[in-house]
């Protein structure tokens, strides 16, 4: 890979990007909102959750949460892209 491409690929993962986060259940109550648009430098959902947990009084740790990106279950290590819709999923309790 030419140096310029490597530079830009790396840069795209750390440069600030605009995305949306939706909150449900306990996280919705603790964030005090259902949804927000934000700009973040977090490369993956893991860093994004840490960033949000510093802002809101979240009591749930990442170990008990799952994450969804654009309406589908995802991994904590999936790179975030501009325009992504991210949801952190608290322990479920249907039925």
């Amino acid at each position: 890979m030419p140096p310029s491409a490597a530079c830009c690929a790396a840069e795209s993962t750390i440069s600030p990007k605009a995305l949306t986060v939706q909150y449900y259940a306990l996280l919705r109550e603790q964030a005090g909102r259902r949804e927000e648009a934000l700009t973040t430098s977090a490369p993956t959902p893991r860093e994004l959750y840490a960033e949000l947990a510093a802002r809101y009084p979240f009591t749930l740790t990442p170990e008990v949460l799952r994450v969804a990106i654009n309406g589908e279950f995802s991994e904590w290590s999936t790179p975030l892209a501009a325009g992504d819709a991210v949801v952190f999923i608290p322990p479920v309790a249907g039925g």
Binding site: A25, P90, V92
Partner: peptide, 20 residues
């Protein structure tokens, strides 16, 4: 597996999200 959450409202006035 399905992302559904249940909040219980108790007789004493407290409430809580089940499993959370």
């Amino acid at each position: 597996r399905v992302p559904i959450w249940k909040k219980e409202h108790y007789v004493g006035g407290d409430s809580g999200w089940v499993n959370c």
